[in-house]
């Protein structure tokens, strides 16, 4: 069972952690994560190796991602996948982000209408 309260303590996620988590909804290795995030963000986010390795290490120690396959003899790249705990956190984080966006949209809309009335 996932303890939702303890998962909530990990919020909010950094942009790096968030993108690594959503990338790992399918099994990928570090290089795969990098390429996927670059593609998802249309080249805006280019992970440096220190940043990516640190994030992978950190998310693994928090139990948000887990080792999917050990590295082979030829390939030192390990494959990871999101855990149930990681999935729970992702849903909570999405709800938080949606709330923020919803509020921002509503207030921007209101402000724009307000300006229109003054003219």
């Amino acid at each position: 069972m996932i303890d939702v309260e303890s998962v909530k303590k990990l919020m909010p996620l950094t942009e790096t952690s968030f993108y690594v988590l959503i990338s790992l909804l399918e099994p990928l290795h570090g290089y795969g994560i990098m390429q996927k995030v670059e593609q998802l963000s249309k080249g805006r986010i280019l992970f440096g190796p220190g940043t990516l390795y640190g994030a992978m290490n950190n998310l693994q120690s928090l139990g948000l991602i887990h080792l999917y396959t050990e590295a082979g003899d030829q390939d030192r790249r390990k494959v990871y996948l999101i855990t149930e705990k990681g999935n729970t956190l992702l849903r909570l984080e999405m709800a938080r982000l949606e709330e923020m966006l919803k509020n921002a949209r509503a207030l921007i809309h209101k402000a724009e209408r307000g300006e229109g009335n003054e003219c």
């Binding site: 570090g30 290089y31 990098m34 190796p49 992978m56 030192r76």
Partner: peptide
């Protein structure tokens, strides 16, 4: 091994 690989990939 994995650490150096991530760097090499970048």
């Amino acid at each position: 091994g994995e650490y150096l690989q991530v760097f090499a990939d970048c």
